[in-house]
């Protein structure tokens, strides 16, 4: 699950590490302003709990493989987004330092994907859904949806980083992304189920443990804007992850057609069919083929940005911005 070293380029690792350090620093700053003396025992204990909880195996239908809790949304729901991000960063650091699980340079990438995109983004979706889903069942349902989305968003984030590491320039990665998205939407179902079961116990026995934002009514507009941005990014990445299978299907279909046509043109050996010649040499020699692939990925990024912009506009226009887009996506 954790990204090892050697997969992403040092540039990507470095910039992600900077972003992750900034996010962790900001979380610490926020925590110091709210619960100053409780930060160390609460986040430390929650880190230990998530660490121990990850060692409980959940049997899968396929016998020898088993899954486990990831815990980003769970920690955020109990302790709030700032502590949640911090807890995931701690767990990842300890797993690196004790197990060599996840890379050393890639630690920042892992913290960003699971702590920032997973826990912050997951909490943003959860908080948005919470406004519409009342009661203890609402908490559980919102957390289930948020944890499913957070897994998907983290994996989409990895796809983006992988593409930026230079492999996307020369190779077609659509199928890889489709595979990642499909695989992680299944993992996300497991994560959602576990989070839901765990939280239903907590909600039943100790509802006071669930994090309540202190003054939701007097929240400054800056916070709600940043929350809307986070929701937008998470939803955009999730949507991108979802479009990937369709995109790949389309691309497969296109290539199949191209193959058949070029095969036909080969069989005919008709030199006048110049249009079809473009399809005949797809082995990287033809710049136009590369450009078409590039344009597809640019279109994907553009689409993601468009969704982000739409989410931002919705956030500005509608009163509860996050919840409406989130609920719409979930339905």
């Amino acid at each position: 699950m954790h990204i090892p070293d050697g997969i992403l380029s040092p540039e990507v690792c470095g910039s992600m590490a900077l972003a992750a350090a900034g996010a962790v620093g900001y979380s610490l700053h926020q925590l110091k302003q709210t619960v100053s003396t409780k930060t160390i025992p609460l986040t430390g204990m929650m880190g230990a709990l998530v660490f121990a909880g990850q060692m409980i195996n959940f049997p899968l239908v396929v016998a020898p493989v088993s899954g486990h809790l990831l815990g980003g949304v769970l920690a955020s729901v109990i302790l709030g987004p700032w502590a949640g991000c911090l807890v995931i960063a701690l767990v990842l650091t300890v797993q690196w330092a004790l197990f060599a699980d996840g890379g050393m340079l890639a630690l920042g990438v892992n913290i960003f994907n699971m702590g920032v995109v997973g826990a912050w983004g997951g909490y943003a979706v959860y908080a948005g859904l919470r406004r519409h889903l009342q009661g203890p069942q609402g908490t559980v349902a919102a957390a289930v949806i948020a944890s499913w989305l957070s897994v998907l968003a983290a994996s989409s984030m990895f796809c983006v980083e992988f593409a930026f590491s230079g492999y996307g320039r020369t190779y077609d990665l659509t199928n890889l992304f489709a595979l990642m998205a499909t695989f992680h939407s299944l993992i996300g179902i497991g994560e959602g189920l576990i989070t839901g079961f765990v939280l239903s116990v907590v909600v039943k026995l100790r509802p006071d443990l669930i994090y309540q934002p202190q003054d939701a009514a007097t929240a400054s507009p800056a916070i709600s804007t940043s929350r809307a941005i986070t929701v937008g990014v998470v939803l955009a990445l999730a949507v991108a992850g979802f479009l990937a299978p369709f995109a790949s299907e389309y691309s497969d279909g296109l290539e199949a057609v191209a193959e058949r046509m070029s095969f036909d043109s080969l069989a005919a050996t008709d030199p006048t069919v110049l249009v079809l010649d473009d399809y005949e040499v797809p082995i990287g020699e033809n710049p136009s083929w590369l450009w078409s692939k590039l344009s597809v990925s640019i279109a994907g990024v553009g689409g993601t940005l468009a969704v982000l912009a739409a989410a931002l506009l919705l956030g500005r226009g509608l009163k509860p911005p996050a919840s409406r887009t989130g609920a719409g996506h979930a339905a």
Partner: peptide
């Protein structure tokens, strides 16, 4: 049932850990 029972285990562990964190915090203070 195995999933539910395992998750309930984690849930109980979470409640106990948070209580322990409160106690430890009190002792630290």
């Amino acid at each position: 049932a195995a999933w539910q029972s395992n998750a309930q285990l984690i849930g109980m562990l979470l409640i106990r850990s948070m209580d322990r964190a409160e106690r430890v915090h009190g002792a630290m203070c």
